[in-house]
Simulated scan of single mutants.
Amino acid sequence: MTAPLPATRADVRGIWSLRRQREDWLIARGIDQWRPGEVPVSVIREQVDRGEWYVLREEEHHVIAGLRLLWQDPDFWGPDDGTAIYVHGLMLDLALAGEGLGAQLLGWAAAQGALQGKTRLRLDSAATNPRLATYYEDSGFSRQGQRQVGDFFEVILWERPIATTG
């Protein structure tokens, strides 16, 4: 896998399209997580402008995977003690599911955290998605709690240590 690159404004529609693909997939399976159209293009554009999105592209501008990296996440995790990096919105084109790309992206995110001295990789998932919970458990994450976040669904908070070198 080549490393994800910082998203540009040219990637906004591609990120949004991946999100919509996943929203429709979740709804078709009766999983109450991402609801169709709940994140407008304008929100993704703002996140890209803040430098939060990283993408993998096929050819020049076709986004095939993406994730947001945050250095704090008070809305989901509360105050940060400076030891964690946070992943949101990890997604890849459904045609690539099962090829290990998600695990590679999580490894890349952990490496970005390690470069900044972080020792923990954190993320969350909808409590209503047991398949995703199993995926994170199998990926070495441990449950750190469960909480209701605003008007969103209830989430499970996940954490995995970041391997340090040296």
Rank of each mutant, 00 (worst) to 15 (best):
I162W: 10
S17L: 01
G51C: 06
Q144V: 13
W158Q: 08
G89H: 04
T2M: 11
R29D: 08
Q144P: 11
G14N: 05
D24Q: 14
D73Y: 03
A10N: 05
A65R: 01
L5C: 11
R22H: 14
H62G: 07
R68E: 12
Q33W: 12
G30H: 04
L96M: 14
T164A: 15
L132I: 11
L132N: 06
R29V: 04
D151H: 14
W108G: 15
S42N: 00
L106K: 00
L56E: 03
R120G: 03
Y136E: 11
T8H: 02
G145W: 06
W25L: 09
A110Q: 02
G66K: 04
Q148A: 13
R50P: 08
A103M: 12
L96K: 07
T128G: 11
A114Q: 06
D32A: 12
H88C: 08
D151P: 01
T2G: 10
P4E: 08
F152C: 10
G113Q: 00
D151N: 15
D49F: 10
I44R: 08
H88K: 09
V41E: 14
A110N: 04
L92N: 13
R29P: 03
D75C: 10
G140R: 02
R68G: 10
T165I: 13
E23H: 02
E60S: 09
D11R: 03
L101G: 10
L69A: 04
T8D: 08
H61M: 12
R57G: 00
Y54H: 09
Y54V: 03
V87I: 07
A97S: 15
T128H: 09
W53D: 09
W77L: 09
Q112G: 06
D32P: 02
Y136S: 10
W34C: 00
S17I: 05
R143C: 04
T2V: 15
Q146S: 14
S42R: 06
D32I: 07
I31C: 07
G150T: 09
V155L: 11
T83H: 05
L67F: 05
V39E: 01
W77R: 03
T83S: 00
L96Q: 13
W16L: 01
D73K: 00
R13P: 01
A126H: 04
Q144M: 14
N129F: 11
G51T: 07
M1V: 15
T165L: 14
T165W: 11
A110S: 12
A65M: 08
A28P: 10
I15A: 02
D80F: 14
A65K: 05
R68N: 13
L90M: 09
E52W: 05
A65V: 08
G30K: 04
G82P: 03
H62M: 07
Q72A: 13
I15C: 01
V87D: 00
R35M: 12
L121I: 08
R19G: 02
A110T: 00
Q146T: 13
I15N: 07
G100M: 02
G102H: 09
G14D: 07
G51D: 10
R35G: 11
I44H: 03
W108E: 13
V87Y: 07
E60Q: 09
Q72L: 12
A133G: 13
F153V: 15
E58K: 08
I31A: 01
L56V: 14
Q144I: 14
L18D: 01
W16D: 05
S142Q: 12
N129K: 02
G102W: 01
S42K: 11
L5Q: 15
